[in-house]
Design a protein around this nucleic acid. Structure first.
Length: 552
RNA sequence: UGGGGCGUAGCCAAGUGGUAAGGCACGGGACUUUGACUCCCGCAUUCGCUGGUUCAAGUCCAGCCGUCCCAGCCA
């Protein structure tokens, strides 16, 4: 992967030049409330790759300050996905925001002592009313001028569980007239009696993101807290916390635009709903944009990282074409994937000049791009299967595959001529009777004639029957633009987006391929064999310019 | 309409006063034992708009337009 260079690295270069920071330290702070997806990969990539570039450190920190949304299932999956994506454990360590609750409490107490925070008894509704609107300033809470002593006592009582949930909050005393809504005396602690996945019932008060995050960053020695752009409005508050709390270190927050991908639902809320309502099989359903689903489909970490980098890192909102992602995985698999032949929609081909009890093996390259991938032996016999779409009874112009009385190369084997087409009562082609050019073998025609097309095939007696799941623009909407405003995205999922195809024929050497080996689905795409249930999931479609031509 | 961010090709994106990189997509051609891959060629007289400064403006200034974010005791 190329070294990253963007407006963020420019900021860091300058910080190093001016002595603001020496060793660069970044972090990725997911809330464990869902699985990581392709959008998360951008935040991981930015923070992680920058730590690598500067020989710095990279922390994984679970931002688990809201007990009602978080779960250990997500903690585990996040760790696994990050390890997979970056190929290593976070160099700076793995942390939990909740481990700093005591420190957060101390900071809050310090703010109270300094008269910079107060306990507010206003109800939710009152708080909202006092906050004002975008265009009108807020009003000071009547509790704003409580003495530090009184606040200290009340805050302690909050911690001791003397007050019911939601009855009081601790607020930072900043400016109720600030044009930035985040600065209008934001809540920094709330009362919630909920089981925390790590702290259990040790706490009934929890710090809010805006308060906890800068503290976590500072305690971990983070130099650059790189987050997505919706937090730009929070930066003044981030700095306020860092400046006003007794912290050992001043991290710097900078922001970048989130990643959006065409026809892809990226909101964790919707993804969770898809799983919970069982519209998909799970978080790793191949239609999902999650990292575990992409992994299952055979996407590699490198392809995903490459995609994120090529999509660009800037501050402008963007909607990146999913074809760029597909390009990235195709590019990599083209070099690395072992090829295997498979037939999705079989029609039988009988080689009439090849005797029934005869059989031979052809040696075929595992990867034409890479001789070191070796070869494999595949059996050839009188009865074969070929792809239905590789034969045309009435060939369109420029059709290079097989047609009546036409010739075609069976990949790695003989050139065959179609002599007879057998159809059923509906006119469907069920069998082709062909003769092979046995003289030529797996070589060029001895008489020098030109045979344009090459198609894939599988020997019938040894073919492995399989079911394959095909997806059609996974996890996607048919057309995002068609979704009326305010409509639940889930209603617009393409019902045909995951289709099981039975009766597929795979070449026998597939059985010997180690689990996880990628297979090129000839002319169709790449597949990965699933270790658990022996499913084959299609991942990326190769380009078929003939199909494209036909569409015109 | 308060504040902040962002507008460069169909989609991303570089560009920091000196005459518009690159990738994806797309179109054309060559090659090919998978119509893939690979390789060539093409693809912004112009940078949201309008003025201004300058020998010179995508870059500086002013005004306007568009778009995204903020009124959770979510992150």
């Amino acid at each position: 992967m190329e070294e990253v260079s963007n407006f963020l690295t420019e900021i860091i270069d300058e910080d190093i030049a001016t002595g603001f920071s020496e060793q660069i330290h970044t972090r990725f702070p997911p809330e464990p409330n869902g699985y990581l997806h392709i959008g998360s990969a951008k935040a991981i990539f930015i923070n992680w790759s920058i730590s690598k570039k500067y020989n710095g450190l990279f922390n994984l920190r679970y931002d688990d300050t809201n007990p009602v949304k978080e779960d250990t299932e997500y903690v585990d999956s996040i760790w696994e996905d990050i390890r997979w994506l970056t190929g290593e454990e976070p160099s700076g360590g793995v942390y939990y925001g909740s481990d700093y609750f005591e420190k957060c409490y101390e900071c809050a107490v310090a703010l109270i002592r300094d008269g910079k925070a107060y306990v507010c008894d206003l109800t939710h509704e009152e708080v909202r009313a006092y906050r004002g609107t975008l265009t009108t300033p807020g009003k000071n809470s009547p509790y704003r001028d409580r003495t530090p002593e009184e606040n200290l006592q009340l805050f302690q009582a909050m911690r001791d569980g003397k007050f019911p949930d939601g009855s009081r909050i601790l607020r930072a005393k900043i400016d109720m007239a600030s044009p930035n809504m985040n600065m209008r005396d934001p809540a920094i602690y709330r009362i919630v009696r909920a089981h925390h996945h790590r702290q259990g019932n040790a706490w009934c008060i929890y710090p809010l993101y805006d308060f906890a995050h800068p503290i976590q960053d500072a305690l971990e020695g983070i130099t650059h807290s790189l987050c997505s752009i919706e937090f730009e409005n929070h930066r003044p508050l981030y700095e306020w916390v860092v400046d006003n709390c007794p912290l050992p270190h001043h991290p710097k927050q900078r922001e970048f635009a989130r990643l959006n991908v065409t026809n892809t639902v990226m909101s964790k809320r919707y993804l969770r709903e898809l799983v919970e309502t069982q519209k998909v099989e799970g978080w790793d359903d191949p239609r999902m944009p999650t990292l575990c689903a992409l992994r299952r489909r055979g996407y590699t970490p490198n392809a995903i990282l490459n995609f994120v980098q090529r999509a660009g890192i800037a501050k402008a909102n963007s909607l990146v074409d999913i074809r760029l992602l597909e390009h990235c995985i195709r590019e990599e698999l083209n070099e690395t994937a072992l090829r295997r032949m498979a037939i999705t929609e079989p029609i039988k081909m009988v080689i009439t000049n090849y005797s029934e009890d005869e059989t031979e093996v052809f040696s075929v390259s595992n990867n034409p791009q890479d001789a070191s991938a070796g070869t494999r032996e595949i059996p050839f016999s009188r009865e074969l299967y070929i792809e239905k779409s590789d034969f045309a009874l009435v060939p369109p112009p420029k059709f290079q595959r097989l047609k009546p009385d036409g010739e075609v190369r069976l990949m790695g084997a003989y050139i065959v001529r179609c002599n007879e087409v057998i159809t059923d009562e509906n006119g469907e082609v069920v069998e082709l009777r062909c003769t092979a050019d046995l003289e030529t073998g797996n070589g060029m025609p001895v008489d020098g004639r030109k045979v344009r097309g090459t198609i894939h095939w599988v020997s019938a007696p040894t073919a492995i029957d399989a079911s394959i799941y095909l997806y059609n623009n996974l996890f996607s909407l048919e057309n995002t633009n068609d979704v009326p405003e305010g409509t639940n995205y889930l209603d617009y999922l393409n019902p045909d987006s995951l289709k099981r195809l039975d009766g597929c024929k795979l070449e026998p050497s597939v059985a010997e391929v180690p689990v996880g080996t990628r297979m090129q689905f000839v002319r169709m795409g790449y597949f990965i064999k699933d270790a658990e249930d022996n499913r084959y999931n299609r991942i990326v479609t190769l380009k078929d310019s003939f199909a494209k031509t036909m569409q015109k």
